[in-house]
Design a binder for these strands. Sequence first.
DNA 1: CTTGCGATTGGTAACGTTACCAACCTACCG
DNA 2: CGGTAGGTTGGTAACGTTACCAATCGCAAG
Lengths: 338, 338
Amino acid sequence: MSTSRGARQPTIKEVAGLAGVSPMTVSRTLAGGRNVRPDVQERVMAAVRELGYYRNENARSLRPGQPSGLVGVAITNLANPYYGNFALGVEEVAAEHGRRIILGNSGEDAGRERQLVSDFIGRQVDGLILVPTSGDAEHLRPERLGEVPLVLASRRVPGLEVDTVLLDDVGGSYRGTVSLLEAGHTRIGFLGNRSSVFTGARRYAGYERAMLEGGAPIDPAIVARDQQDVAAASRAARAMLELPDPPTAIFSANNRNTIGALREIGRRIRDGLPGPHPAVVSFDDFELSELMPVPVTIIDHDAQLLGREAARLLFARLDGSADEAARTVELPVSIEFP
Amino acid sequence: MSTSRGARQPTIKEVAGLAGVSPMTVSRTLAGGRNVRPDVQERVMAAVRELGYYRNENARSLRPGQPSGLVGVAITNLANPYYGNFALGVEEVAAEHGRRIILGNSGEDAGRERQLVSDFIGRQVDGLILVPTSGDAEHLRPERLGEVPLVLASRRVPGLEVDTVLLDDVGGSYRGTVSLLEAGHTRIGFLGNRSSVFTGARRYAGYERAMLEGGAPIDPAIVARDQQDVAAASRAARAMLELPDPPTAIFSANNRNTIGALREIGRRIRDGLPGPHPAVVSFDDFELSELMPVPVTIIDHDAQLLGREAARLLFARLDGSADEAARTVELPVSIEFP
DNA sequence: CTTGCGATTGGTAACGTTACCAACCTACCG
DNA sequence: CGGTAGGTTGGTAACGTTACCAATCGCAAG
């Protein structure tokens, strides 16, 4: 009787034996069949099917210069739907180029990122796509990466001149803040990341510029710049909304902070606290934003497109432009009014 | 002058040469250093650092029986945040076991899934974790997979006896529907997937049982079972809400359908159409559900936990229980009232 | 019938690593 | 001081594949 467990993977030699040809002929057939007689190809393919043979891609890429067909991708936070979409964009373009992605979650930890990159290189990835952490980036220096091209997404790393895909963080934040000023708000709170996070600095810069140009004072009491998760964002929003002079609007520099702020605003509405409740501008879209109890303006962008663009830069470099200078693509954002 | 591009990856021989030892000693040092003199280990590690050497994991796993340290993961839709969290759960547990994941998006296409699995096996993955598509599953039969263990998540495949992690779809849907009946609703619409999708069938079964037991008639006019995306779900919701006798509540069997339904309800509220607007029960959580303009009951579960559990089953099988019968874990769901 | 050319096929070596075995060295015991 | 055990090191072969070259085949032209 046959057991439920299958057998060892067959090798090319066994296929060759069954088909009555040499391993070379099997290899050639699988590589497209150039200079192999059609009837021989038939026999080989029959043997392949019969044995359930899969070419060993690792052995294949052992030969130097042979691409492994793998792209290493490290993300800071896969739980964030934004990065899920980013990964999907990378995956799609990689698949179009016949590549797979190896995915790792760095969790904003530079040490973990370093491990991931080591492992990726050890697996002979053809390229790396990272959303870099804000920590030490010694492990990303060109001399450490050898010939493996690197593309950064979302964030730049100081001193590292590599292909990079960014969003128009400054412009988007500026325009978002301006829309609040134009609506008559002058007391506008800020929720975001600290300056050491690349996007944190850029998005604050856009807010700051709009406020300065609009003649609106920036009150440190309603600027909170160190929330990484929803719970912390809620607490920060609560603190500023409980002030004697709370902000009339809140600029939120990312997804997590927006959710946190809206959760707090929702709680205040449910608890019957007196309004008016603050308007919100959010850098990053989220589903059903149009159903929120306060008007939410979205600074929208396409994470999947960001991923696709990062992958395109990588494959452009793999397909020839190896020696050209590093390129930066800055993707536009759009503003969606409530 | 030094160019910005790094050099070829050094091999173990070059490290050995620089350290003045044999490749074997380098290999042993990197494998933990058993039976290598400490001063020699020092010299080896210095050479490793100097040259920027990374062990070639592909060559390493060439030897049969050696694990590759890779787990192949295929997801039906990575854009869905639910699956992003699933992937994260798998990634975390895999990382705890020193493994990486290779990720592919099948997009509900069985052919694409087959390609992904072929590629994964060709890369000598230690195991596979799939959210299977509903199509032909010939490529998942044990004789096709050889020795590679497979874990299914979210959905079962008919006729395939392998380790599986499921949600309590039937129970959750039943309890969710009962909560609507208890609130006095009898005309309850259904939005979900068709029966050929495993969860589509199970979640409908829970709804059906609750309706039958509650003596509420099931009207085919308010049962829509073929929406894969948000736009289709919106259209289906619109169709049933425009009936002369619209449902007073809607049971939505997943994330995408919930968003679609709520978008349509929001539109009707904004357009000033007369209510009452339907209550919603949603299988799958989403952020800020508590801020919706109609009460939303959530049948909640933890996608990340589902991923972790799937990975645990896989590693349990890799770590010994290879010959035991297939196990199924059914994770509970919780009901969150508005 | 010979020659030559292109198409087809096979043998060998190499990719980078580690298991296995053999050789060596050291130190301690008798 | 010889013997031996254990710790340390190196050589060889093999993992599965494909590039390169050599060999063979078929066929058409002379």
